[in-house]
């Protein structure tokens, strides 16, 4: 059996625009070459403008998303406020590092807008919680090589919400079409200061 990271397949990407961020994922869940489901979203909501994408081993995508739902709910109850993307980033980092010698096989991607500063924020992590603060985009999953290529080629600074949607969608769809373990439709979130748009993309069904 191969690496736990590419048993189930999947891809996720986040991008920064002008006063907006976008995060997108594919919808496939497979076991090696066999596709089990074409409706397995990998992006989870943790505050009105904060989203976390999880790729990797599907069981850990489930476990980690459940774990952070619990942790973020506890945070909201204690603090009586929503968690900021920056705080969530550090929560994700420390929680993953707790399992330093028996990690969750996930590569998280975080995207959001900080409601206090109004500034967009994205970051990515490795499976043991090392944070990658990027100013442009973050990619993860079995199509990460392809995503690096498409994002590096298509992305430009200060894209507006609609242009950012087009960019992230084209980058993701083109990337997953060159990866056998990802695809089967996609989900895209465009996050603006006080508006979130969710779109479903059909993409190639093979």
């Amino acid at each position: 059996m191969g690496s736990p990271f590419d048993i189930n397949g999947g891809a996720c990407v986040a991008m920064v625009g002008k006063d907006c961020v976008a995060i997108a994922c594919d919808l496939r869940l497979g076991m090696q070459a066999l596709t089990i489901s074409n409706n397995f979203p990998k992006i989870f909501n943790f505050a009105p403008s904060t989203y976390l994408g999880l790729t990797g081993l599907a069981t850990d995508v489930n476990t980690v998303s459940d774990l952070f739902r619990y942790k973020v709910n506890m945070y909201r109850l204690r603090e009586e406020r929503h968690i900021s993307p920056q705080t969530l980033a550090n929560l994700v980092s420390s929680s993953l590092y707790e399992k330093r010698f028996g990690p969750f096989f996930v590569s998280p991607v975080l995207a959001g807008i900080n409601q206090t500063t109004g500034k967009p924020f994205i970051c990515g992590f490795d499976s043991i919680g090392c944070i990658d603060f990027a100013k442009d985009f973050i990619v993860s999953g079995t199509a990460s090589d392809q995503l690096f290529g498409t994002c590096e080629g298509l992305w430009e600074p200060d894209l507006g919400a609609e242009d950012l949607f087009e960019t992230i969608s084209q980058a993701l769809l083109s990337a997953v079409d060159r990866d056998a373990l990802s695809g089967w439709g996609a989900q895209v979130y465009i996050i603006e200061k006080d508006k979130v748009t969710q779109r479903l993309l059909k993409g190639r069904q093979d």
Binding site: Q146, F148, S174, G203
Partner: peptide, 27 residues
């Protein structure tokens, strides 16, 4: 870097995943 470049080429040379705006409804 073939895996990085090839999907970019699919998109920009063969116009994969690109559709003509207003040419039809939905799918």
């Amino acid at each position: 870097a073939a895996s990085l470049i090839m999907p970019f080429l699919d998109n920009q040379v063969n116009f994969k995943n690109q559709y003509i705006p207003g040419s039809g409804e939905g799918h």
